[in-house]
């Protein structure tokens, strides 16, 4: 199902938590929602899941506005809220059964769905416990399981991997990737490698506004512009090497990172590469080039650039 968000605004008093945002997500797409705390990620998700009422702008799912069709649309949405609220005094299986029934899974299909979720989310060893006895990671899995119990076409996951250990994180990401092939997934996170690992598209939101939208590759390209190399040149006097690097016509800025280790950072002029020139310089002077690493602009940098001011 396709989700279309048009000019969505949400005010809390005078403050706009979400400020006139528009975007679309299509079936088979995993959209990563990125932004600093309080940027409006959670609010947007609450609006899509109809926990909050849409007052300005519109959200439509497969052409149906959530304002008029909330009751039918909710059935197709699986939602993992931010703090993963659960009825902790219920047993895992009871709880999943309750959620399935609430989402109107036919009665005879419920046991099968529960089995499937227990398998998918790795709850087999914990399934006979009460939720209050589970660790945070397992509670998170239960939260994911309840979100997917009715096999929804849309998954809205607010920080799905918080509290999971590294192995679980990898598993859950893999799971989301698999699910994302047939479903529409929106997930929020502030763990940047996570978006890169799981999402087809990234939406960075700051102070209620969208500040970037694209794949991690395109975002990188936009932000990058200049080539930055980290080079280690041995067997030469650092000062000499430094001035020689500066004299290459393609370099714009040279920095000594570590004198003792002969490490330099070379930034090239826009749209130019200094790789070959650096190599030839070393060859000419009999210096030994032991390292040359192109530094990619990290997603962290893009994120900071876009959200810090």
């Amino acid at each position: 199902m396709n989700i279309k968000i048009q000019n969505l605004t949400k005010r809390y008093g005078v403050q706009k938590a979400v400020d006139d945002i528009s975007f679309e997500v299509k079936t088979g797409e995993i959209l990563g929602f990125l932004g600093p705390n309080g940027a409006g990620k959670t609010t947007t998700m609450k609006l899509i899941t109809n926990f909050l009422e849409v007052q300005e702008g519109d959200i439509s799912i497969d052409g149906k506005s959530i304002k008029n069709h909330a009751e039918t649309l909710k059935r197709h949405i699986g939602y993992l809220p931010e703090h993963n609220p659960l009825y902790i005094d219920m047993g895992v299986l009871d709880y999943l059964g309750f959620c399935a029934a609430l989402q109107q899974v036919p009665k005879q299909a419920i046991p099968e769905r529960i089995r499937e979720m227990v398998r998918l989310c790795g709850l087999d060893r914990e399934k006979h416990k009460r939720i209050s006895e589970l660790s945070k990671g397992y509670r998170q899995r239960v939260g994911l399981a309840q979100a997917m119990i009715h096999d929804p076409k849309i998954l809205i996951l607010d920080e799905p991997t918080t509290g999971l250990d590294p192995n679980q994180i990898v598993e859950i990401r893999e799971l989301i990737r698999q699910l994302g092939q047939q479903k529409t997934v929106i997930l929020s996170t502030h763990i940047l490698p996570e978006v890169e690992a799981t999402c087809d598209r990234i939406l960075i939101i700051n102070r209620g506004k969208i500040v970037a939208d694209g794949t991690s590759a395109t975002l990188r390209k936009q932000a990058q512009g200049k080539e930055v190399l980290r080079v280690r040149i041995e067997d030469g006097d650092s000062e000499t090497v430094f001035s020689a690097l500066q004299n290459i016509y393609t370099t714009e800025l040279v920095d000594i990172l570590d004198k003792g280790n002969h490490l330099f950072e070379v930034q090239s002029v826009t749209d130019m590469s200094s790789k070959r020139e650096v190599f030839q310089l070393c060859a000419k002077n009999n210096w030994v080039l032991t390292e040359m690493t192109p530094l990619e602009t990290k997603l962290e940098d893009i994120f900071r650039d876009l959200t810090l001011n």
Binding site: T49, N50, E71, K74, P81, H83, P85, Q104
Partner: peptide
């Protein structure tokens, strides 16, 4: 208080 109201209100229940 527990936030479970969010769970209920986003399910297919009026």
């Amino acid at each position: 208080r527990n936030g479970t109201i969010e769970l209920l209100l986003t399910k297919a229940v009026s």
